[in-house]
């Protein structure tokens, strides 16, 4: 539950910073990861917060689609690198949909999105055994509102630390 709430809060923060995708990881943050003593309140390396703040925990999809965008692939490349750095971490990849589809179809579509993200990570060398997928269909939105901006936020696959 805490993980979910953190994910949602982080999403709002990211939205404020740019349109859809997480900002690229800055050099200063990456280099600071190894020591973790210099910053008073930074995320713990390898943690959920670290994934959200410094890597990008989610990728977005077009309406009724599960193909990864170039931005999505870039985010997953960073996730793969991050998972390589923290081999003890396992993740859940959750697929979600906007509510412009029917309940059961969206459960299947959310699964397809989660699997698309997971398959990409496997291709980038992440062991399949470290990842599980789940679909919440249209029932776990991260953005409220019946407009294209909210719907775009809700068509995603979100990685979270298990």
């Amino acid at each position: 539950m805490n993980i979910k709430i953190l994910g949602a809060l982080a999403a709002v923060a990211l939205l404020a910073a740019c349109s859809h995708e997480a900002p690229p990881v800055s050099n200063s943050v990456s280099s600071g990861m190894g020591t973790q003593t210099t910053t008073p309140s930074g995320p713990v390396p390898g943690s959920e917060e670290d994934l959200v703040a410094n890597v990008g925990d989610r990728v977005f999809y077009a309406f009724d689609k599960s193909a990864l965008t170039d931005e999505g692939k870039a985010t997953l490349d960073r996730q793969a690198a991050w998972l390589a750095k923290y081999p003890q971490v396992s993740i859940q990849v959750a697929g979600n949909c906007d509510d412009r589809g029917t309940e059961e179809y969206n459960l299947a579509l959310g699964n397809r999105r989660a699997v698309a993200a997971k398959d990409y990570l496997v291709a980038k060398g992440v062991a399949a055994a470290r990842m599980t997928t789940i679909s919440y269909g249209k029932d776990k939105p991260t953005a409220v509102g019946d407009n294209e901006q909210a719907w775009a936020q809700n068509r995603n696959a979100i990685s979270s630390v298990k």
């Binding site: 599960s66 059961e104 299947a108 699964n111 397809r112 699997v115 698309a116 398959d119 679909s135």
Partner: peptide
């Protein structure tokens, strides 16, 4: 019912 199989159902 449906059961997922990879990305399909």
């Amino acid at each position: 019912m449906s059961v997922t199989d990879g990305g399909g159902s």
